[in-house]
Design a protein around this nucleic acid. Structure first.
Lengths: 346, 346
DNA sequence: TTGTAGGCGTTATCAT
DNA sequence: ATGATAACGCCTACAA
């Protein structure tokens, strides 16, 4: 158990393993690779594995990628990691990928198409085996091109017009319907919608769902009560609400396109001396963290972020393993979390 | 301008460029690489560049890595991306790296040493040129080993005992001093500290700074008023406060180790029918997003997250470019953001 | 079942 | 200044 200690300065390669096991590198390669292990004598394989173990051999993924044009890596294209919506999705994705022996390579695009293009290029040049994209716009030439080039894609939270890509989204219709039903049950009849950007599928689908929900509740659909936000941000939400209030339109409740837009409303309430929920009820969407500690705690539609990530990763792995399988999409059920930003109108 | 369209099915390689320019691949390589361009005839270089441009040649970073053992990539070791502290730091890091032609590869460790080790191994096998580590514990064998192996390291927000590594941290002493001075100026004399984990340098330094600050304010330092949280989390903050309240100790204000711990206090206030700041003042640390919309808006010590990232990336790039330079560390000044969670004791 | 040989795309070294 | 050659570490026809 003692013997001379061999200190190696360079990280061990396949040749080292082969040499130690007394076989040819090709044999060592086959033995080490579960796929090809059956091709090699069981005893030899054992020897090789033991040798590899003993010197702490780790295959060099770079060399492997160069040879195989694969990488066991997928790219995550995220608009902005500081948006609290995305980290839990990323966690879900990573957990599934890791289990399957894959890694995730995350890039921020900042919603800048040029930057997105460069980042995606950088991912592709690293041979990622697929892309999970959270930046999708309804009209998205880059995604179209990638799809045509055969790049495996999965969308999260978004769809692209005229492109049947696998996607994982929350059921926006159901979520918005819950929000509107909740407000209606409190007695609200004049409900406004601060819609998300209409270049995003989510912005559009939530706005459409809003109108449908009004109809279902037997409420009038006043187009002046829907205002679009340029981004999914607090600042844009505030701006949109200001415009709406300044227009003189009358309403007692707001369905916001997402939580950030809803929080933007809080700023306007403070500016204008309004109190929520007494003067105005608000419902958000997404259930970002810490809403329970807001003033007032925000009623919102909760979507299963982590599960969205999980499903997205599964979809992509499926696509990688069964390239010919028909594209599926996954719709996840949301739930309403009632807090203190909603109350009967007074 | 018309001519026959040549459609290539495979992505262009250096050989293609060389062939098109009528030179040897080695020459093309030299021409394309700014470092070695002076070695080649200016006219030839121009020809090569034009050829590369015309077929949209992009060097293959994998092949390059295999040859050069470099990657223009650095690893970011983050405990948990869902902690809102980290995304802005990541942004700062990425912005600097991108400008310098580098990329960042982010991994989550979940504060699990085993997972951390595997993730770091995976980064190293991809030839990252350095690591920016946000998971540092005071006793951190992995970092010690990496350092001994010559891996370039920069720490953010943490230090490691007995290891002089470059690090970027907020000036905890100054921040805590501000918090305590603020509470003292409001008239508080019995101030508690819900300390972060004492395995982290930040947890320790803030706790020490807290005692010093009490002395500076001429206040008694009652050890029973400092309680340690096992993690930097809401749940642990709540738990710690419950223990402290149950102990019967008397105090009117809390300096929390960070914002999450402070928010945990809010839960306990609700449980026990206490109101903040009337019954208890609280100061957080970090200035995570949306604190202004909390109930009550949390007074906290703001640290420049983005700049921490910027400085960390600079430090690492410096280390890469000037390996022999003496390790520097950067201390960034915090500031106090007074909101409504602090008031005079009653 | 194992070995041989060639190549993935790039760059470093040596020779011209 | 440029070309030839080899090598980075691995995988995979093909041959034995």
């Amino acid at each position: 158990m003692s013997g001379p200690k061999i200190v190696r300065m360079t990280t061990p390669t396949l040749r080292d393993v082969a040499q130690l096991a007394g076989v040819h590198p090709a044999t060592a390669s086959r033995a080490l690779n579960p796929q090809t292990r059956p091709l090699v004598n069981a005893e030899t394989a054992r020897k090789v594995l033991r040798a590899a173990e003993s010197i702490g051999y780790q295959p060099n993924p770079i060399a492997r990628s160069l040879k195989t044009a694969r990488s066991a890596t997928v790219g995550l294209v995220i608009p902005d990691l500081t948006n609290p919506l995305f980290p839990p999705i990323v966690r879900g994705i990573e957990d599934v990928l890791t289990t399957a022996g894959y890694n995730a390579w995350i890039v921020n695009t900042d919603n800048d198409p040029g930057r997105e293009e460069r980042q995606v290029e950088s991912l592709r040049s690293r041979q990622v085996e697929g892309l999970i994209v959270a930046t999708a716009r309804r009209d998205h030439p880059l995604l179209l091109r990638l799809h045509r080039q055969g790049v495996r894609l999965v969308l999260v939270n978004r769809r692209v017009d005229g492109l049947e890509l696998p996607s994982v989204t929350a059921d926006d219709d159901a979520g918005i319907a819950m929000a509107v039903a909740h407000l209606a049950s409190l007695g609200h009849t004049k409900i406004a919608h601060l819609a998300g950007p209409q270049q995003t599928s989510t912005g559009v689908s939530r706005a459409r769902a809003f109108r449908h929900a009004l109809l279902d509740q037997g409420l009038a659909d006043d187009p002046r009560l829907t205002v679009e936000c340029g981004y999914w941000s607090e600042a844009e939400g505030a701006q949109a609400l200001r415009r709406l209030l300044d227009s003189g339109a009358e309403f007692t409740a707001i369905v916001a396109g997402n939580d950030l837009i809803a929080l933007g409303c809080y700023d306007v309430f403070a500016e204008r001396g309004m109190t929520c929920p007494d003067d105005m009820s608000v419902v958000g969407f997404n259930e970002m963290p810490f809403l329970d500690k807001m003033r007032p705690p925000l009623t919102t539609v909760a979507i299963p972020h982590y599960e969205i990530g999980v499903e997205a990763a599964r979809l992509l792995l499926d696509t990688i393993e069964e390239p010919d399988r028909h594209p599926r999409s996954v719709l996840l059920a949301p739930s309403l979390v009632v807090r203190a930003s909603t109350a009967p109108p007074r």
